[in-house]
């Protein structure tokens, strides 16, 4: 699953560690989500959507 996490945090001048603190996860988790190695659970996806004040489908895109 592709996502716009890297672009969205860049727009806010956040590092991966900054975003990780906002989401209360590890920096490795943010890195894994950004690089597509880990698909976030629905609760975490909703947290990300709330943080960026956007619908989930504008952040995450199904590759199919």
């Amino acid at each position: 699953m592709k996502n716009r996490l890297k672009v969205l945090r860049a727009e806010r001048d956040w590092s991966q560690a900054d975003l990780a603190v906002h989401l209360d996860v590890s920096r490795q988790a943010v890195n894994a989500i950004e690089t597509g190695k880990h698909d976030p659970s629905l609760p975490l996806a909703f947290r990300i959507a709330r943080l960026f004040d956007m619908p989930i489908e504008e952040i995450f895109h199904d590759e199919a």
């Binding site: 900054d18 603190v21 209360d24 996860v25």
Partner: peptide
Amino acid sequence: GHNEPEAPRV
């Protein structure tokens, strides 16, 4: 290492 902020959970 990177010496960066960490979430309370971590």
